[in-house]
Each structure stands twice: as structure tokens, then as C-alpha cells.
Computed example of a mutant assay.
Amino acid sequence: MSSALLIEQALNGLQFGVMLFLMAAGLTLIFGVMGVINLAHGSLYMVGAFACAAVAAYTGSFWLGLVASLIAAAAAGAIVEITVIRRLYNRDHLDQVLATFALILIFSEGTRWVFGSFPLYLDIPKVLQGAISLPGGGQYQLYRLAIIGAGLIVAIGLYLLIAKTRLGMRIRAGESDREMIGALGVDIASLNTIVFALGAALAGLAGALVGALQSVQVGMGEPVLILAFVVIVIGGIGSIKGALAGAILVGVVDTMGRFLLPQLFALFMQPSQAATAGAAIASMLIYIVMAFILAVRPKGLFAVNA
């Protein structure tokens, strides 16, 4: 195993973790402030990817597509919050799960009706189509590094928003006591819509960025949504810092597990058996890590107010 290949896989894990952070950050904000379990968050990821692909194909500009993904996902999130989620705040979690699961079906069929059943494809912008050299002689795609950089910039921006602005102060207060800030004159309805739209925009951005690495297709958000829930459980529900830590942990563990475990099993098993066993254990690895972390820290790595 070369050092260049090991570094490449570690960077792949970091890139995957950053993408999960963009999903999980919005999800943990929504749950932390509103107490709503939003299964349709993956659909907003899909909306962002389709908006980016459609606008990029029409204009020839990936960057305009990226802006469109933010606007489309934020608008879809605001509409969903106003028309559906707002009626679920005082209902139990089962009602929220059923309603947002219905939204998944609506988004999927609506997207299929508008764009058809065939996948769309996004081209990586020319400025990011190159590769850089890694220690040991390997090459790593510049676009994947750009995703890592974009995710870290978003993480810093979210920290500054939550910690240093008046809106962030209201969001933190809403996590602690929504009724109290309502009594103090804060418009809770508007705050909820803003938070939901912000979370949706982050999901849409993740979908657009990943859309250039894989096909853009109906249902692409559901597998990522499951991992995003794992991230916020590991990191601590409601914590942006926890979402970042949990996302990077999940991304690196999942990627490195799929890379290293088959090679480890190959030391004492037949290659075909090692590949099968390694893939099976690797697919369970993040859930094993989650169970271990929750056994030690039942509320996750960081408290809600971290």
C-alpha cells in the first residue's frame, strides 16, 4: 500500500465528511430550534442538485447553477415550512415522520414529472478540472479539494453566524426556550422559516457540489439523509460543532474502512472472501462507532449548547 494511495483515501474521507456536514448542519439546526424530525431534508439536497444541473445546462455556467441550487433549495424549504411544517410543531414525532415522509414522495414524483426519469450530469468547471500532486507521487482531483475548502468556509461562516450575530443569538435562544423569546417580542414564525430555509440551502449546496461527481437523479438524497442522522446523533443534536466533528469522523471512518478492511482480511482469507467480508463489516462500521460513542456519551460528542 503506497503512502499516496493512503493520503488519497484520507482526503476522500474528509471530502465525504464535509459533504455530510453540509447536510447535517441544516438538519441539526432545524431539529435543535424547532424540534422537528424532517425526513424530507434529503429531498432538498436533491432539489439543489437538479436546480444546479438544469441551470448549468441552460446557461453553460456551473457557478450560476450553484447560485440557483441555493435559491431553489432555500425557497423550497421556506415553502415546506410555511405550508406543512408549521402545522407540526405541537404534534408528536410520529406525525412529523409521516408528514415529512409524504413530502419525500411528493418531491420525488414532482421531480420525475419535471425532469423525467433519466439522470442529469454536471460538468466540473474548467478552473477546477486539474489535479495536484500528493506526497509519494499520486494525484488528487482539484475539485474534491475545492469541496473540502468550501465546506470548511461554510463551517466558519455558520460559527460566526450563530456566535456573533443577532440572528444567531435568536437561534441559540430558540434552542433553549422558544416560548420565552416569543414572549420577549421575537417573531417565532419568521425565525423558524429563516432557519428552515438556511438548513435547506445548505442541503441544496451539498447536492449541487456532489452532483458534479456523480449523476443527478431522483432519490439521490435518501441514502445521504440516513448518514446525516448518524452524524447529528454522534455529534450531539443541535450542535454545529458536533455536526462538523461527527461528519468528519463518519466520512473518514466509512471511507477508510471500505479501503482498509478488505486488505486486512486478505492477510488471512482468500481475496474474494476478504472483499466480501471487508465490504460487509465496513458498511456496519459507522453504526458500531455510533453505538460506542453513545455508550460513553449518551448525548453525543458535544452538548446541545456547545
Rank of each mutant, 00 (worst) to 15 (best):
T100L: 04
I106Q: 06
L294T: 14
I286A: 09
G257I: 06
F101K: 01
H93S: 12
K241L: 14
Y121Q: 09
E175I: 15
P119M: 05
A206Y: 05
G138Y: 06
E179C: 01
A274R: 07
I85L: 14
A131W: 09
L209W: 05
M269F: 08
G221M: 13
V296K: 15
V84C: 12
P125Y: 00
A183D: 10
S176A: 14
L11Q: 08
I7E: 12
F21D: 00
Q15K: 08
P262C: 05
G219Y: 15
M1Y: 14
G32A: 11
G137K: 02
F229Y: 13
A56D: 04
V210W: 14
L227P: 15
E222F: 15
N305C: 06
S2R: 00
R178P: 04
F21Y: 15
I124A: 09
I248V: 15
I194D: 03
I232K: 07
V55F: 04
V218D: 11
L14C: 07
G257F: 03
Q214L: 12
G235K: 13
C52H: 02
A75P: 02
V195K: 00
A247T: 07
G219W: 14
I171R: 07
F21L: 11
R178Y: 01
M23N: 11
A212M: 03
G235P: 12
G13M: 05
F62G: 05
G185Y: 08
E81W: 00
I181N: 12
A206L: 03
